[in-house]
Design a protein around this nucleic acid. Sequence first.
DNA 1: ACAAAAGTGTTCGAAGTACACCCATGT
DNA 2: ACATGGGTGTACTTCGAACACTTTTGT
Lengths: 248, 248
Amino acid sequence: MPYAFLPDVARPAVTVDMLVFTLVDGALSLLLIERGLPPFRGRLALPGGFLHVGAGGRGGEALDDAAARELLEETGLGREQVTLGQLGAFGRPGRDPRGRTITVAYYALVRPDAARGVRAGSDAACARWAKVADLDLDALAFDHGGIVAEALVSLRRDVDRAGAALALVPATFTARELREVHEAVHGHRLDAANFDRRLRRLIDDGLIEPTAETRATGRRPARQFRAAQRGARSASTAARPSSHVGRI
Amino acid sequence: MPYAFLPDVARPAVTVDMLVFTLVDGALSLLLIERGLPPFRGRLALPGGFLHVGAGGRGGEALDDAAARELLEETGLGREQVTLGQLGAFGRPGRDPRGRTITVAYYALVRPDAARGVRAGSDAACARWAKVADLDLDALAFDHGGIVAEALVSLRRDVDRAGAALALVPATFTARELREVHEAVHGHRLDAANFDRRLRRLIDDGLIEPTAETRATGRRPARQFRAAQRGARSASTAARPSSHVGRI
DNA sequence: ACAAAAGTGTTCGAAGTACACCCATGT
DNA sequence: ACATGGGTGTACTTCGAACACTTTTGT
């Protein structure tokens, strides 16, 4: 038993909410559930759940582990298959009519090929991919609209640092696919020629590497790339300041 | 009374911890308190406290308000005098030996002139400015060393976007002072000539504006600048994509 | 053959870096 | 007068945007 006790103040309930992003038909999409119970019954909401807190002083799960658990429950995806990170905490009084809750929002970036199998999580009544462009943020349950809005700002800011973009393409991808990630996130077209030169820089920097095979894509076959495994950096990378991936 | 109740699961205690940064003698510094009580008695820690949660379902304070309240209690500074923002939530089991706690970390950037008067908060046993360069992160209480490390990464990333740097200089400042903020945060010297051209761009973008007076600084008097009040943007700013300030 | 997509080259401007240099002032 | 810091100019480079252009495939 610990030698000192936490003061006996009122505690909020703590939940973890997930912002699971992927690309569906080239459009940035977010996994939402339709609530089957009040409050906000019938409204769309972020998947999530309560943080597991052990009975004793030390038990329970870390926030990151709670996010990974929720992700697995809702989508069947393991944390190795996605890019996971924390967005922040939200706790305005009144955000949940049932009582005081704090939520810690996590984002998860899912490759589109892995996203195909995501359906009917055990926890959620009905999980679906919603295109971000079509989403009415004000219609979401709780304060989830505001959380999604913040996540989109972070995502758009950090997709250019390549880390986030690489998390949203299949393991091997074409230049077009990676470009479409940027286009989907930012919502506007990019010059294919300029983007290819950016790809070449990513190769120079050791972030991605070309594969031997090409892929038939309807017309002329395209070269493919894959994310470089860490450690296999080129000399030019070592000289540059490392491009930190940062949060989402 | 609400029509539905939160499930009766165990709840963690929720605290708000403050990372109060300023420049002391040109060195990036952080406000720390020496703990007077166990656990970690005698060790340095971030100032902070428990989130106020109302007895009913709706009462209590928002996370931002808790951060502002802690800041006021520890430093006497109001939220209008500082730049305040959330860093994130930390909740590893075992981070507090007394029991399960989640902390939401906030940063506050304090202008050096305002930091002069910060001393002996009502809450803290003994508050002091610690130079970040001299700090032994592993010696801090709880998991505060890791939190500080994360904050420094964010601060270094975002000081270049000008928003953070302007929060760490007096209301009117010289080019040298703003440059020293960048140097203090990044830990290396910058070319004064190039930095001056960056200043000129900040003027063009309407972020800062020159004042009429100059300041005697030992040798040749220096021109002074101030942060431009929002709304007084130049034409060039309106055309550009707005440079979001982002978190810390 | 032709359309569509892959891929290359060119030009321009914005902005970072390095460095030479002039200017104004307190001692 | 002169050292010190304030302030300007110049050359080089990187990188994004715009766009003309060639190459390679399927139909």
